[in-house]
Design a protein around this nucleic acid. Structure first.
Lengths: 104, 104
DNA sequence: TTGACATGAAACTGAATGGTTTCCTATATA
DNA sequence: TATATAGGAAACCATTCAGTTTCATGTCAA
């Protein structure tokens, strides 16, 4: 199952940081790795894991590779958390159900 | 920061499964490990990581150790996901804000 | 077309993870 | 009190993970 790949992807702080960065628009590998101490190949590996989790998509532009956020993959996490949220925020869980029902 | 400990804790499928099990009530170590193929010490380690993430609490009853879910720790995850949810479900994000404002 | 730039790929390393086995301690209970 | 039960602790192992260095490839631009 792919669910595990999402949880795996978001388990690392660098990867969550990259997601935050991409929330303001797509970025090339160079632009991304410029923000971190680690080497470029290390960032490449993180991007691959994010891609495997479906959290980003990659497209080529010339010799660059542009990485864009694909946040819908987080629905998996959101749904999982929602199950438990009934135990600490019933109002929120109820409203979520209402919203989802409306969308049908 | 403790945030990382939560994401680390929920990254493993066995630990997420244990959380689901505990959602129906507290359980002793023996009761929990009976549901898995792995040995009891292995389950003990998972429980320790869940505890470090604040996701469960443990109390002693005689020679037993009862483990109970503490789902509020998932608020960390919920909040993090909410930031990204604005990109795939604005209605839900809006309602969540309303709910949280009401609680103030 | 040559050189600079953006990236990919492979081999390696150390630390963390998920698991095991073995042994020890504490608490119930016959 | 002797024994069974519940769990803790330590030592060990294999795999995965996050990072590195080195080298190769493809594309742009002078």
């Amino acid at each position: 199952m792919t669910e595990q790949l999402v949880f795996r992807a978001i388990a690392d702080p660098t990867r969550r940081s990259i997601m935050t960065m991409l929330s303001s628009g797509e970025r090339s590998l160079n632009e991304i790795s410029a923000h971190y101490e680690m080497t470029r190949p290390a960032v490449t590996k993180h991007l691959k894991i994010l891609q495997e989790g479906g959290l980003i998509r990659v497209r080529a532009r010339g010799r660059e590779r542009l990485h864009a956020l694909q946040p819908e993959a987080l629905k998996t996490v959101s749904d999982w958390v929602s199950f438990f949220s009934q135990f600490w925020d019933e109002k929120l869980a109820d409203l979520k159900q209402i919203v989802e029902a409306e969308d049908d």
